[in-house]
Structure formats: C-alpha cells, structure tokens
C-alpha cells in the first residue's frame, strides 16, 4: 500500500438529534485506489464521505487529506482540488451543460480560453456534441446528466474524486455502461476515487478496496477478493451473500 491520500483516525460523529453516525472510525485511502464504501442505509457511509472534504465537521478524532491535517486546509481550496459527484449529477438547471461542466473552473476564476479548451476536451472524452453542450440539463437523459456530473468533477484535474451514490437513479443498462466507463477512467487517469453505494455488485466491480459499514462502524476494509474469501464476521458474511 502506498501512502494514504486520505487518513481517518478514530473519528466520532454524533448529530444534534443524538443519532450516532460514526463511532471511532479509522480508514486509510491509498493513493490511486478506488475505495467503495457500502452498507445498509443509515450506517453512516455518506457521513464518512462528507468528512473527507469538510462538508461534515467531526466531534473527535483526526483527519488528514493529501498529507495535510484537515483543520489546516482552507476548505474552499481543498474542495476545489477534490471532485464531487452527487445523485443525479446535481446539475444546475438554470445553466447550460457547458456552464455546468465549467463550474469549478469559473468559480476559481480560470481564464476563459483555458476553461473552454478544457470543457471541449472533456466533452470529447464523455461523448457530448456541441448541441448537447449548449442544452440545459433537463434536455438530457438521466445517463447523460450523470456523465455531465462526472465531467464537471473532472474539470479542475482533481487528485481525488468523491462520489455519493452517483448511479443510484439510473436504469440497469445505463448504470453498467457508466460503471465500465468510470473503471476505464480510473485506470487511465490514476486519480483516487472514493464512492458511496448501496449496490454490492457495483462495489465489488469498481472497488480496488471496499469498506463495509454497519451502524456507524467499519466492519471490514479490504480488497474485494479478501472480503469474499475471508469475511471477518457473520454479519459481513451474511451482508455479502444477500
């Protein structure tokens, strides 16, 4: 294992409602890995993801991202270095697809010409034509919207991409297609991916590492093969055979 690009140590998070989302969680995300966090709903997987770009504040423990303690990061600068993809792409309905993809570039005042070049490059990779780039998100299909969401996350050349159930709302065929595209992209670009999903098949297909969570704790964190071969306990064994 390389140096961890994200390191979470003994983190606890309790919501105002008294709901314990994370209990003494530790996780090391290796450089260039594709880490998938999976577990039943309410297990704290989204909370764990949102710790990584400072969207959720922890109660205790320590987090370091790209070799630097999270507290000493300017959160805005940190987030611009990390791509962020949410369900259904989270595209802005009032902006054209082109402007959506260029969002991070425009908020970090990248020069217009460079930004256009980058968007056109991404459009080529993702298979968008000129007409689609000028359309509004509502005019695209669900799969295309999600593609645009991924393109938006890639635009600023991030080192890490965080994805929160990115393919949750898609039909099966579109989902499989996108999964293989993402897998290709991960191999090609060498970026670290952290993804939350509730789809076991997706986790084992995409992940180089899988974290299985239950009730605020990580039950097992390992490669898909090792988890399948040696589940640490009965709960994990049962979870992966459903």
């Amino acid at each position: 294992m390389n140096n961890p690009v994200i390191e979470i140590e003994n983190v606890t998070k309790t919501y105002e409602t008294g709901n314990k989302a994370l209990i003494d969680v530790s996780l090391k995300v290796p450089q260039g890995a594709f880490v998938v966090i999976i577990g039943p709903s309410g297990c704290g997987k989204t909370t764990l993801l949102r710790l990584m770009n400072g969207m959720t504040v922890i109660d205790s423990g320590r987090i370091s991202v790209m070799g630097k303690n999270l507290e000493s990061w300017d959160k805005i600068q940190l987030r611009r270095k990390m791509g962020y993809v949410i369900q259904q792409g989270g595209l802005f309905p009032h902006l054209a697809v082109r402007q959506n993809i260029a969002f991070v570039l425009s908020i970090s005042s990248v020069e217009k010409h460079a930004s256009e070049k980058r968007v056109n490059g991404l459009a080529e990779i993702m298979g968008f034509d000129e007409r689609q780039l000028n359309a509004f998100p509502s005019e695209l299909s669900g799969g295309q919207q999600q593609r645009a969401g991924v393109a938006r996350a890639l635009a600023a050349n991030p080192e890490i991409i965080l994805m929160d159930e990115p393919f949750g709302a898609l039909d099966n065929i579109t989902r499989r297609n996108l999964q293989s595209e993402i897998k290709e992209m991960h191999k090609k670009l060498g970026i670290t991916f952290v993804m939350v999903t509730h789809d076991l098949k997706e986790a084992f297909t995409l992940g180089t590492h899988v974290a299985i969570m239950n009730q605020g704790e990580i039950e097992q964190f390992d490669t898909p093969e090792n988890i399948q071969k040696k589940p640490v306990n009965d709960w994990v064994k049962e979870f992966i055979t459903i």
């Binding site: 969207m55 940190l78 611009r80 369900q87 989270g90 802005f92 009032h94 908020i107």
Partner: peptide
C-alpha cells in the same frame, strides 16, 4: 438543498453559492 450542497461541495464560496446558484434559481 441538493444543488446548494453540490455547489458548496465543489468549493464555491458562500457568496458564489448565493450569486451563481441560489439567486438565479
């Protein structure tokens, strides 16, 4: 709120979240 969250998560400043996303919508 999902859109506001997305903008914030991508590193928009509070003013950018307001002026680029919230206000126009």
């Amino acid at each position: 709120p999902l859109l506001l969250d997305a903008a914030k998560g991508m590193g928009a400043t509070p003013w950018q979240v307001f002026s680029i996303v919230r206000w126009p919508l």
